[in-house]
Design a protein around this nucleic acid. Sequence first.
DNA 1: TATGCTCATGGGCATTTATTCGGCCATTGC
DNA 2: GCAATGGCCGAATAAATGCCCATGAGCATA
Lengths: 313, 313
Amino acid sequence: MTKRSSRLDDAARAGWLYYVAGNTQDQIAVKLGVSRQSAQRLVSLARSEGLVRVQIDHPIANCLELADALRDRFKLKFVDVVPTDPGSESTITGVAESASAEMERWLRREQPVLIAVGTGRTLKAAVELLPRMDCRQHRVVSLTGNIAPDGSAAYYNVVFTMSDSVNVRSFPMPLPVIATTSSEREMLHAQAMIRPTLALADKAEVTFVGIGDFSNDAPLYVDGFITAAELKALQKAGAVGEIVGWSFDSEGKMIRDITNDRVASAPIPPRETSLVIAAAKGPRKLPGIRGAIHGGLINALITDEDTAAKLLG
Amino acid sequence: MTKRSSRLDDAARAGWLYYVAGNTQDQIAVKLGVSRQSAQRLVSLARSEGLVRVQIDHPIANCLELADALRDRFKLKFVDVVPTDPGSESTITGVAESASAEMERWLRREQPVLIAVGTGRTLKAAVELLPRMDCRQHRVVSLTGNIAPDGSAAYYNVVFTMSDSVNVRSFPMPLPVIATTSSEREMLHAQAMIRPTLALADKAEVTFVGIGDFSNDAPLYVDGFITAAELKALQKAGAVGEIVGWSFDSEGKMIRDITNDRVASAPIPPRETSLVIAAAKGPRKLPGIRGAIHGGLINALITDEDTAAKLLG
DNA sequence: TATGCTCATGGGCATTTATTCGGCCATTGC
DNA sequence: GCAATGGCCGAATAAATGCCCATGAGCATA
């Protein structure tokens, strides 16, 4: 414990000296009384542990224009467009940072806020980027179940990840993501422990969700929430995207039956009362993003330049 | 105008690709269609224009900020701020470790160093934390006498404590801390055995001292070096702190007479030629620390977060 | 048109940083 | 008690970065 935390302490020191004070790793080594290599390791540790937070404090003209255009065209309440890293395959760099920053802005408020969160890789990454903070005044409610198909804790459920660094009253959803039958779903939702959480989700002031695609590597399928057959059926029925398990088509209309009659997630909070922010980018997700926008499933978007341009084009 | 802002735009983009997306400057050059050198210039421009904001998300970061601010504000040559241990009443935990580490750094040098040491609980604790080491090349000279008022060895004299673990040529000061009269002090200082040691102290390259306070539990009084009446007189004369027996006021000015005309310690080594490091923390010592800094009695400081914040506030 | 100025550019090189490798030490499990 | 394992360290080396300089374009002025 002492050992480990003192190592992180040193890493933070090294990171500060390097990134803030602008020391070279040699100087850091001298100041910390370690070898140059160790200093290098500490600096790199500081980065990989997320101790170092970098943000660019300058709106890039093109991103701003795209954001404005998107907001205008699709009557969105909030849009952020981050630069595209050409050639990078990652579907999260950039949007994760931006989503994290936006989340932080809400969490920093004095006034209590009720925040709903979905699930997914992007959101998980965003939440992991949050700095340590104390926000007992806020509440965070999960829209989706935290139980994976095999009974374990769903990996990409973010409420627990958030509590690692942020002290906030959290309301996980002790449910599977997709129930076995429609009636089982009803039964689960009727439970005394679940109903208040569902009610809470309905009243969220701001909601953060990811958007899942329906390619053959659809996250719902890869993570084992739906079967290959169900995936096929959904694709055939025109599913292009999915938010906390709710599948929809290119018009943003919910797909009837197949899985939607068994999705145990809370409904997406009403767009009239909640700012529903989707964080997603990339060609694979493009149809889903488009659908979600057209169907009014979301009213705010964090994406990247490329995707923004394609949405407008 | 457009030119300049588009250049900043590019800088922001380059900075984003570099710091957020983790590209190398080579990759950025390709993506932005410029030469590697230009990419480097853009990244460096982004930093120098303050487009890049780096934060370290760790409690230690605050300490480093405070240290920086102190060094700046008070033109100190070296400052270390250790985390405050909330709830710990001890006036030494933290600073002792840091002082010890700093001392060790000096002792580890290959080149011979002349080190002067003061006295006090903090310093004693620091010296006790030193690992066993062999440093025959160095010399350590005590600034204060090692004879307590009752004739015994002064308990908080650290030169002997140091020799327990560190093999170094040491020069104790076989004197009382405060002589009975001013002329006795002169006589003692004139001794053939003392003069070289005093001369040595004057040439110290680095000096470690504690700072004593002048509350009713002032260490000088508690340890019997001054009487209750003298303590009162000193308090009345505005004494807020004391370094190796030399009492000073909130401006760092030496208190005239009372005891200072009889202090047998060596003068504090000249700040022009010696790094004079004070290790002290806590509310009781705050006025003394402040005085010592303002009067330029010291040019380096090891303290804790709380104290640092109060010094700056 | 010539001149002088500023400034971005890319080449070359020194410095700094990242990575890889082999060895050492402590812990773990047999 | 002893070998396997994993983590950490330093050395060597490869990669990336920072800096200086000569160059030339763009532009204002003589």
